[in-house]
Each structure stands twice: as C-alpha cells, then as structure tokens.
Design a protein around this nucleic acid. Sequence first.
DNA 1: TTGTGTTTTATTGCCTCC
DNA 2: GGAGGCAATAAAACACAA
Length: 313
Amino acid sequence: MAAAGGGGSSGSNFSVLLQSQRSPCATSQPLDAFFFTGSSPSFQGSRSMVSFEDVHQVNGSTRPFFRSFDHEENGDEELDEYFHQREKKRRLSVDQVHFLEKSFEVENKLEPERKIQLAKDLGLQPRQVAIWFQNRRARWKTKQLEKDYEALQTSYNSLKADYDTLLKEKDKLKAEVSLVTDKLLLREKGNLELSDKDALSQEPKKPIGDSTSEGEVSKVSIGACKQEDISSAKSDIFDSDSPHYTDGVHSSLLEACDSSYVFEPDQSDLSQDEEDNLSKSLWPPYVFPKLEDADYSEPPASFEDQSFWCWSY
DNA sequence: TTGTGTTTTATTGCCTCC
DNA sequence: GGAGGCAATAAAACACAA
C-alpha cells in the first residue's frame, strides 16, 4: 500500500468548500488556498489505497499522491516503489471525485487550461483528469441513452393503446356494417320476389331470343335473378315491341345484373323516368352476390374482403 | 474466504478537425 | 501531422452473497 503524507486537511472541510464554490473552474483561489496552504496538496490517492484517515495515520510524510512522479525525492527505493505502484490502478478519493463531478456539471468538456488547473488543484496528472472526463462523458451518454429509451418506450405504449382502441372501434363498426348489409339484402330479396310475382302474373314469359348468350348471362352474379327472368326482362326492355317496365326495382335489378359484366345500355334508350329510377334504386351501385353462394347468416369474414363486395362504378 | 458481477481507471486504435 | 474525442476493451478495485 502506498503511503502518502497529508496536508493536514479533512474531507468535510473540502466538501464545504465545494458547495461554496459553484464554478470551480473560474478560479482556483479557494482550492489553492485549501490544497496548497500546507506543504503539500491534500488529495492523496484513492480511497482504497490511501484515504484521508490513512493520510493521518500512516506517517508524517508530505508526499502527495502523484508526487512520486515528480522525481523530486528519488531515492532508489522510491523509484522502485514508483515503478511498482504504477502497475496498479488507484481509485480517486471521494473528494477528488466529488470535485471532478462538480466541475463536470459546470462543463463536460475540458479545455487544456482547465485541465491543467484541475490537475493542479487535485494533485493529479492532467492526463488522469482528461481520462476521468472522458469516462464520465461515456457514462453520461449511456445514462442519456437509457433515458431516451424509456421515453420512447412510454411513447410507444401510449400509441399502442390508442391503436388498440381504434382497432376495437373498427371491429365494432364492421359488425354494424354487416348487420345493416344483411338487413338490406333481405329487404331486396323480399322486394324482388314480390315484383317477380307481379310481373309473371301480368305478362306471359317471352322466349329467350335476344343477343345475350347463355354464357354471358351466367356471368351475372346475382342469385335473385333467374337466368330466364333476366333474359326476358332484358328482351322486354330493349324490344321495341314490348312494353317498357318502369318499375324501378325491376329496372334496377336488371341494371345491377348487367353491371357485373360489360353491358352498357345506351342511356339514350332510357326515358328520364327510367334514369331517375335507376339512380334512385341503385345507390350504392353494388352488385348483389349470388344468393346461392352467399352465406348471409354470417357477415363477411373481413370488411376488406373484396370478393364479397362487388361495387360497380 | 471465495467466486462473481459491477464499477472505475486506463489503454488502444480510429476518426475528425485545424 | 498533431491534438483531442470517442468506442471498445482490459484490468484493477470494489461489493456482496454463499
């Protein structure tokens, strides 16, 4: 253990000084007075190796902690001791660290003059002071990163909670949409059956004779529209000899059926009434799914499931 | 007392700036 | 090219449980 002489000072006095001097780098006068009023500086190595108690207990030597580097008292024994000691690391004393911390709070960068002054005040080598600041900056950066991480995590948790809430709201709305859709489909189906009955009772079915091929008709994805009904209806509408249905539902159904494939009736062929009826009855203009294929007991698996909806704009 | 994990001091190598 | 900063790392000192 390296023995070091003390300057006749105490750590508690030093603490008082530290508190009274907010900016130790600005001037070192009080510190100089404190450390160097005696025959030697007061900092005497690490807590483990040389404490202030040690300073008083070990011997009366006035050798400072790194005084041995000065080679001012070099006997062979001390030279050996110096080289022996240099292999070991020494922790700074509590007060040295306290002083360095205070200095670090003021400014975490170290200008050359300040480094020299601190080293002088603390009885350390300038390089030790530089290293201490270097390591202290690294520790500060690590702490800062931890703080940043915590802040980000908090922010993330908050956003996640918002997202989950929105997700639940979305599911709820989806359920409502599918409920309304079911009702709408059922109503349309009821109207369809009614109008078909009316049509059949009033008008004998004409043979399929228009240009619409069986293949094309089969493309119509509407279960409520039987193929012959579609064909006859179309032939009825576009056969100049046949009376035109002005029933909105019927017309709209035809339009709906046809809209699933490329069949654009010449709008000029339609009366204004028919156009009005179309626009009234077909909004939103989507194509009903095939009734035989659709399972209306359950809403669509996904609102985004495009196969269920067949919008035709 | 000892093994082990953590903290602190110090070194090394690379990079940037003047 | 030298000085200084930084990241990575070594190694000593320290804390603490078993």
